[in-house]
Simulated assay, not measured.
Amino acid sequence: MLRYELSDADLGGVRFGISPLCELGLSLRAIRDPSRYPLQVPWLRRTEDARSRLNLEGLLALVDERHWTPDFLNPRPSSPLTRIDDEFAALSVIPAEQFHSDLMSVHGVIPAFYAGPARPAIRRMVGVLEDFWDSCFAPHWLRMRTILEADIVYRGRQIAQSGLFAMLNDLSATADFDGHALSIRLQTPVSRTEQTDGLGLTLVPTMFTRRASAPVSAGMPPMLMYPARGQGAMWETERVANPAAIVAVLGEVRTSLLTALAAPASSTELGVRFGVTTSAVNQHLRVLRDAGLVTSTRYGRSVLYFRSELGSVLLLG
């Protein structure tokens, strides 16, 4: 049991954040034990081939049999807009003492893959995680983020309609707020109480926890990771009602893609949403781009497509 004793200032400082690195680290739980994360089985299936080419020794050395991950993989996000590149940059310069102590807190020993001098070990870890992100997360991240952001919007509406007390008590069956303290029932026999000392409380929705989670080590900034709503919709195939006249010109798939591209999306994300292979989506997008109906731009490690002004005029009249 972890009990955060919250002052009035802490309650006034409750904030939400999204951490791509936190999602990356917590997803190792699903890789280690897929049966405990049924909603993410489609993600595991879709990334199975990519994961076979990753350094699984380095990845699985970051999670133990209790499904604990080192606190350096669960940074406290400052906003819902955190970028993975910024988190990787911060991770690459963590102190050697923190790297070793966080690993020890999880495993009791330093895993063989990360033995030896800390700086080279940290570089190995960041390299392994970057490969993992590029192959298994980047193609799906925009849609994942949409679900996480939708949860935050829902929680904000809860606060407005029912108050902070109701919202905090609805986050997880294993977290309870009594008006002064937030109690989190963790899977550990050790109990501790922490004074938050005006640091506020950060609430982080995630796709990869079934119950409330918190930092492993004592004295970390107060943070609660909780299961995001709507995860089951992540892999549902999207169906769009399209204007018949446009379908007659472009075809059903291209019209659906053009409709969806009111918001930027990658070809892989669009393939997931519409049940079409990525290669087929890319072929359709090339045709739409050559016709001037969509544009493309690089965002970090992904290429995003967006409906052009001409595409909007055609679709919306």
Rank of each mutant, 00 (worst) to 15 (best):
S217D: 04
S183Y: 04
G127V: 01
G251F: 02
L11N: 13
D176V: 11
L293R: 09
T188Y: 07
S217G: 00
A138F: 06
P139N: 08
G58N: 05
S183I: 02
E269T: 10
A115K: 05
H100Y: 07
A241F: 10
A241V: 11
A50I: 04
R145F: 07
V281S: 06
P243I: 05
P70V: 07
M125I: 01
P264M: 01
N74Q: 12
D71W: 02
R15A: 09
A166D: 12
P77T: 02
V294M: 09
H107K: 14
S267N: 01
S191L: 06
S27A: 15
E57P: 00
G127M: 02
R124E: 06
I122Y: 00
P243C: 09
F113P: 00
G271W: 04
F72C: 09
L250F: 03
I159G: 10
R83E: 14
S52P: 11
G219R: 07
R46Y: 07
H100V: 15
R53F: 14
S78T: 08
I18C: 11
F274R: 14
A262E: 12
S7Y: 01
M144S: 05
T268F: 01
P117S: 09
D134W: 02
L62R: 03
V14H: 10
T237F: 06
I147P: 01
R124A: 08
F99P: 02
I122D: 00
T196W: 06
T255P: 04
D64C: 02
F306S: 12
P34S: 15
R286Q: 13
P70S: 12
Y37C: 01
I152W: 15
A212P: 10
P227S: 14
D64S: 03
A265N: 00
S312M: 06
L24R: 02
E48T: 08
A263L: 09
L91M: 00
L314N: 10
V294T: 15
C136E: 06
H140A: 08
P42A: 03
L201I: 07
